[in-house]
Amino acid sequence: MWHTVFATAARNQRANLRAFPWAFTLGHIIEGGYLVLVSYFSYVYLIQGDLDDRFALYAGSGNYLAYAIIGGALNVFSVSMMMNVSRALITEWREGTLEALLLSPSSRNGYFLGTALQQFYRSGMVLLAVLVFGILAGMRLSAPHLLSVGVSGGLFILSCYAMALVLGSIMLYTRDTYIVQNTLFAVTTLLCGFQFPRQYLPGFLQAAGGVFPLTSSLQLLRRTLLTGEAIPLRDTLPALLLSLVYIAVGMWSNRLVERGLFEKYQA
């Protein structure tokens, strides 16, 4: 499996660099800077630092700027991670390389992990840019509890990966990327609580947001970054279990759909 992971990551990286030699890096830096500016202007000029009392209660911190910048950065990260992993197979299909890939005895999980690894590198650059711009804009974080940041960060990545696998099956089944991905991203942006605490939402929307592993892993990661507190192990279970369920469903459905794809196409 690891052969496939590293080979796929290297292949994607080479192909990306060859396709977008300088725009590749610059695009991510601009994206990161824009995100921080929007959060900063909203906070300073739109709401003029006037926060609802409930915000600190819901968010666990009154630091809205850090809350919004972290949420925005993680939203960009999750969207690009989910989009690129989920689109991987349908892109192979469109470019005429899926047959060659499926002919080989390579691990499909390895293939997706390789795509995710390369995407992590790309999205990591955006995160880095956001962090630099955020600090320049006045974002301050408490001293982090490194283990908790590591565990919740890993869970966040895992939940993105898990959701991407399921999304990928849907894309492959419907042979559509645009409507499927944008519908999901609009829903996750609203329900997962990237820009504001989910408690502001009506009860049924809060419950709907709980279906995504992204929601609980985002809350964990942001909580530990904002407060610097350690995360109890039991708090990680909902995100972990939900991610594992999504991964199992995603792998199963991908296998089913990719075989069905040739049936549909051939008929």
């Binding site: 292949r11 080989s104 390579s106």
Partner: peptide, 26 residues
């Protein structure tokens, strides 16, 4: 092997294509 121009990664070089597929076969 199919006719036409499918089943290859166009942005990779010829050598990189073979290296990638070699990896997929372990």
């Amino acid at each position: 092997i199919a006719g036409g121009e499918r089943m290859l990664y166009w942005r990779l070089t010829g050598r990189e294509n073979l290296q990638y597929f070699g990896r997929l076969y372990g």
